[in-house]
């Protein structure tokens, strides 16, 4: 029984890993992802700005949290996706996995910039400073450099096959920073507050603030999925163009020789 399930799963994965099949599926899913992301972000923003009460200590600055926490969540989530996709690419050689990792990088970098900027804008009124060189803030800044380094490596290697492997190894090494970001608020003294949702004891936030935050988290995540579909479709089509052009130049060269 177990074996049949595993085989069925492998066959499904193989079909999914085929760029042509993936392209068809992605094209069909794109509008649904767009609609769900739009609704979640619209509802979440409305609740965050108009319905959620101001915090009794932080006042209305707490409304920065509704964009800061999802952006910071996506900073680590996107790189987690890149590391996992890179591992799948290296182990099973699925071309679509490499495409997913490559398509995610600029999105993750953008979310990291959002997390850093909104964090500074929250830090100034609450801590009295835009920036401190503490573990949480510094590890997130390093994450931005890891994203940029990954993108630079893709640009530096011309052969896409070799580029895919080199960047995948880079992503796996870079993933070391993810637990450092996560546990930085526990391992070191910091101004940054510790985790308040993902706690063993359950969330430490009242539902009037937790509900909009969770909707925003879901909205950011589905927005990323939509962007991923769009960017992966572009990448797969761009590769098809490259293959077509290569084939044409070869034909031309053969023609000239004959």
């Amino acid at each position: 029984m177990q074996r049949i399930d595993a085989t069925g799963y492998m066959i499904a994965m193989q079909r999914f890993a085929n760029p042509a099949n993936f392209l068809k599926l992605a094209t069909r899913l794109t509008p649904f992802a767009a609609a769900i992301a739009f609704i979640l972000l619209a509802v979440g923003s409305y609740l965050a700005l108009f319905v959620a009460p101001p915090d009794y200590q932080q006042g209305d600055t707490v409304r920065i949290m509704f964009v800061h926490v999802p952006a910071a969540w996506m900073t680590t989530f996107c790189f987690g996706v890149m590391a996992a996709a890179s591992a799948v690419g290296l182990i099973w050689g699925h071309p679509v996995a490499y495409v997913a990792a490559k398509a995610t990088a600029p999105v993750g970098a953008a979310f990291t910039v959002m997390a850093l900027v909104t964090g500074a804008l929250w830090g100034q009124p609450m801590w009295g400073t835009w920036w401190v060189w503490d573990a949480r803030l510094t590890s997130v800044l390093i994450q931005l450099f890891i994203y940029l380094g990954y993108m630079a490596l893709w640009n530096a290697i011309e052969d896409p096959v070799r580029g895919a492997k080199a960047t995948a190894i880079f992503a796996l090494v870079g993933a070391v920073n993810l637990p450092i970001i996560k546990f930085s608020v526990e391992w070191w003294n910091t101004l940054h507050q510790p985790a308040s949702i993902a706690r063993v004891e359950g969330p430490a936030i009242h539902s009037s603030i937790l509900t909009p935050l969770l909707i925003m988290l879901a909205g950011f995540t589905v927005f990323y999925i939509w962007l991923l579909l769009v960017r992966m479709r572009q990448e797969i089509l761009a590769r098809r163009i490259r293959t077509l052009q290569l084939a044409r130049t070869r034909k031309l060269q053969v023609g000239e020789a004959g």
Binding site: T61, R63, I64, V67, M114, V117, T118, L121, Q124, P125
Partner: peptide, 15 residues
């Protein structure tokens, strides 16, 4: 924004 407009709105605008 309770006097914090200069921080809340730039944060949302950036995102």
């Amino acid at each position: 924004m309770g006097g914090f407009a200069a921080f809340v709105w730039p944060a949302w605008a950036t995102v």
